[in-house]
Simulated assay, not measured.
Amino acid sequence: METPVKRSTAPTKTHKRLLQGMFILNAKKFKAFFINMFSRAPKHKASPEALPIPSYIALLLFLGVALSAAFLGWALLFSDTSVPVTLVYRGREQKILTKADSVATLLENNAITLSESEDINYELSSALNDNMKLVIKSSFPVAVTSGGKVTLLEMRGGTVGEALLLAGIDYDAEDELTRLPFEDVEPGMRIRHIDIQKKYETVTKPIAFKEQVIRDNSRYKPPYQEAVIKTEGEDGEKLVVRELVYKDGELASREVMNQLILKDAVDRVVLVGTKTKYQTGLTGDEREWRPAPKKEQVRETIQISEITAYTHTGRRTATGRWPKIGYVAVNTNLIPYGTKLYIPGYGYCVAQDTGAFGAHKSDKNQIDVFMNTKRECLKWGRKYNVTVQILK
Rank of each mutant, 00 (worst) to 15 (best):
L107D: 05
V144K: 05
P48I: 07
Q389T: 03
K16Q: 11
S68D: 01
P293V: 05
L19K: 04
D175H: 03
T339D: 02
E288T: 14
I194L: 04
V213F: 03
N109F: 10
S55T: 08
G358R: 15
A143S: 14
L19Y: 00
E237T: 12
Y384G: 07
L107Q: 09
L177V: 11
R382F: 12
N217I: 10
L134H: 02
L51N: 08
V150P: 01
Y337N: 02
G338Y: 11
L63K: 00
D264T: 11
Q352M: 12
L25A: 15
W74E: 00
L153V: 11
E93L: 08
D216P: 08
G73S: 15
D353L: 13
S218M: 05
A50P: 01
I196K: 10
G345P: 04
E306M: 10
T231H: 10
T12P: 02
S115E: 11
P84V: 06
L341H: 13
L114I: 02
E2F: 01
A100G: 09
P291M: 13
Y246C: 08
A104W: 04
A318P: 07
N372M: 15
Q20A: 15
H44K: 14
V256S: 02
L134Y: 00
A69F: 13
E300K: 15
L134V: 03
Y220L: 05
K364C: 08
K238C: 09
A227K: 08
K199V: 10
V185R: 12
E183D: 12
I261G: 05
D172C: 07
K149W: 06
I261H: 02
S68M: 09
D267P: 15
I261T: 14
A318D: 04
Q303H: 07
D172Q: 11
K199I: 03
R192D: 03
N26W: 12
G147N: 09
L251Q: 12
E2I: 10
A143M: 09
P4V: 01
W289Q: 12
G381H: 05
I304V: 15
R92N: 11
D353H: 08
A167Q: 00
T202C: 03
